[in-house]
Simulated assay, not measured.
Amino acid sequence: MSRSVKYTVVRQYEGFVPLLRQVPGFVAYYWVDAEHGVMLSTSVFEDQAGADELVKRAADFVRDNLAPLLPNPPQVTAGHVVAAG
């Protein structure tokens, strides 16, 4: 990976990929079907500032577009990357 990746966010909903790509520091996005109705998304940024910006934009996107489908907030885990392969 050519960029220095230091921070990531994991979210259990999706639908805002074009929005995500506009966030400064965006590196990568992964969507996982964990089966049994569970979907996971992982967003990778160059730093925490980009991840924090996505949290704000994602909340607005869900409120404006997905609120009836997602009555409960997602489980969000975030932190500094300590190892990458």
Rank of each mutant, 00 (worst) to 15 (best):
M1H: 11
M1K: 11
S2D: 13
R3T: 09
R3A: 05
S4D: 11
K6T: 13
Y7K: 08
T8R: 01
V9L: 14
V9C: 08
V9K: 05
V10I: 12
V10H: 07
R11Y: 15
R11N: 08
R11K: 02
Q12W: 09
Q12R: 06
Q12D: 15
Y13Q: 08
E14Y: 13
G15N: 02
G15M: 06
V17F: 12
P18S: 00
L19S: 12
L20W: 04
L20C: 14
R21C: 12
R21Q: 12
V23P: 03
V23C: 04
V23N: 05
V23A: 10
P24S: 10
P24M: 02
G25Y: 01
V27F: 11
A28K: 12
Y29V: 09
Y29T: 07
Y30T: 10
W31Y: 15
W31I: 14
V32H: 08
V32S: 14
V32I: 12
V32N: 14
A34P: 03
A34Y: 06
A34N: 12
E35G: 15
E35W: 04
E35R: 14
H36P: 00
H36L: 12
H36R: 15
G37S: 10
V38M: 13
V38S: 05
V38G: 01
V38A: 10
M39N: 13
M39L: 11
L40C: 11
L40Q: 14
S41I: 10
T42E: 06
S43L: 07
V44P: 02
F45W: 12
F45I: 11
F45M: 08
F45Y: 12
D47V: 01
D47W: 00
Q48I: 09
A49F: 02
A49N: 00
A49E: 10
G50Y: 03
G50S: 06
G50Q: 02
G50L: 02
A51S: 04
D52E: 15
D52C: 04
E53A: 15
L54T: 00
L54V: 06
V55F: 03
V55K: 03
K56G: 05
R57W: 09
R57N: 12
A58T: 11
A58Y: 06
A58M: 14
A59R: 09
A59I: 00
A59D: 13
A59M: 06
D60T: 14
D60R: 10
D60P: 00
D60H: 04
F61L: 04
F61R: 04
V62R: 14
R63I: 06
D64H: 05
N65P: 01
N65W: 03
L66R: 03
A67M: 01
A67R: 13
A67S: 08
P68R: 14
L69Q: 14
L70I: 10
P71N: 13
P71T: 05
P71H: 06
N72Q: 11
N72A: 06
P73K: 07
P73Y: 01
P73I: 03
P74T: 02
P74Y: 02
Q75I: 15
V76P: 08
V76L: 11
V76N: 02
T77F: 08
T77L: 15
T77Q: 13
T77M: 08
A78T: 15
A78D: 03
G79F: 04
H80K: 11
H80L: 07
H80F: 01
H80E: 11
H80Y: 09
H80N: 09
V81A: 03
V82D: 00
A83E: 02
G85T: 07
G85N: 06
G85C: 05
G85I: 10
